[in-house]
């Protein structure tokens, strides 16, 4: 798993609508918020970066979102698996990967 934190800025009057949009996405959790400032801290848990990018695109396309930006990423589990030979960085992973929910 890869965990990524991101800062999302939104139009203040649309918080409720935005929240229900976020809640519809199983990979995304709200960790901190400042509703007056129109900011949320999200943590996104994905199998890989491709899935993460799909989520990013979804936020960028959402009219309620002013800005969505990454801040930090934890990829330790993947590194451990890579070094221990449990996963390979090869293209078969990509070819065989099932489409995630947002696609």
């Amino acid at each position: 798993m890869i965990f990524t934190s991101a800062v999302l800025e939104f139009h203040k009057d649309s918080y409720k609508e935005l929240l229900s949009f976020i809640e519809s996405q199983s990979q995304v959790e709200v960790y901190d918020k400042d509703i007056d400032a129109g900011k949320l801290v999200l943590v996104i848990s994905t199998e890989d970066d491709a899935e993460l990018e799909v989520i990013q695109k979804t936020f960028h396309a959402n009219k309620l979102v002013i800005d969505f930006t990454y801040h930090a990423i934890h990829f330790g589990e993947s590194v451990d698996k890579l070094i221990d030979g449990e996963i390979k960085i090869d293209f078969e992973d990509i070819n065989n990967k099932k489409k995630n929910k947002l696609q």
């Binding site: 934190s5 960790y31 901190d32 999200l42 943590v43 801040h71 930090a72 990423i73």
Partner: peptide, 8 residues
């Protein structure tokens, strides 16, 4: 996740 969120 908390560590990453705190930083963000």
């Amino acid at each position: 996740k908390s560590t990453l969120a705190a930083s963000a």
